[in-house]
C-alpha cells in the first residue's frame, strides 16, 4: 500500500491531494470522482493539521492510499490530540445566511463524499482515520 509521511502543514495539502488523485486515477475513478476524493482528503488532512496538531509545530501525518477491489481506501494516521469527526455537529444547510454555521463544513463534505468514514484513537498508536469510496 503506497504510504507517504507529510509534514502537518497546510502548505502540503497540494501534495496530499496529488497523492490521492494519482492512486484514484490508476484505480479507474472518473475525473469528477477524483475531484471529490481530493476534496475529502484535503478536508480530513486540514482538520488534523488544524485541530489534532493545534499549537504543535512539528507534527506529521502518515497517509496511505490504495485500491481494494473497486474501492479506494485512504488512511490517515497522526500523533496529535484526538479529533473525532463524528463528534462534529452537522451544519444546518437550510439555515439562512445570518444563521449559517461557519464550522463543521469540512467534516460534512467528507461524510457526503465518502461511503465510509471511520475514526479510532489510541493513546499508543495515535489517531487513525479510514475513508473508503467505491468506484462509479
Amino acid at each position: 500500500m503506497p504510504k507517504t509521511t507529510f509534514p502537518a502543514k497546510f502548505e502540503y495539502l497540494d501534495e496530499i491531494r496529488d497523492f490521492v488523485a494519482e492512486i484514484a486515477r490508476e484505480g479507474g475513478f472518473t475525473e469528477k470522482e477524483i475531484y471529490s476524493l481530493q476534496l475529502a482528503a484535503d478536508e480530513a488532512a486540514s482538520n488534523i493539521i488544524e485541530h489534532a496538531y493545534e499549537g504543535v509545530a512539528n507534527g506529521s501525518v502518515d497517509i496511505s492510499c490504495s485500491m481494494q477491489g473497486n474501492s479506494i481506501v485512504i488512511i490517515m494516521r497522526d500523533q496529535g490530540a484526538p479529533f473525532d469527526p463524528s463528534t462534529v455537529k452537522q451544519p444546518n444547510l437550510k439555515a439562512d445566511l445570518s444563521e449559517r454555521q461557519i464550522g463543521g463544513l469540512g467534516v460534512y463534505l467528507m461524510r457526503k463524499i465518502m461511503d465510509e468514514v471511520r475514526y479510532e484513537s489510541n493513546s499508543r498508536t495515535g489517531n487513525l482515520l479510514t475513508m473508503i469510496k467505491r468506484r462509479g
Binding site: L13, R17, Q38, S46, L105, G106
Partner: peptide, 9 residues
Amino acid sequence: EYMSSAGFR
C-alpha cells in the same frame, strides 16, 4: 481550479 471548505467559509 479548486476550492475547499476553507474558501467556502
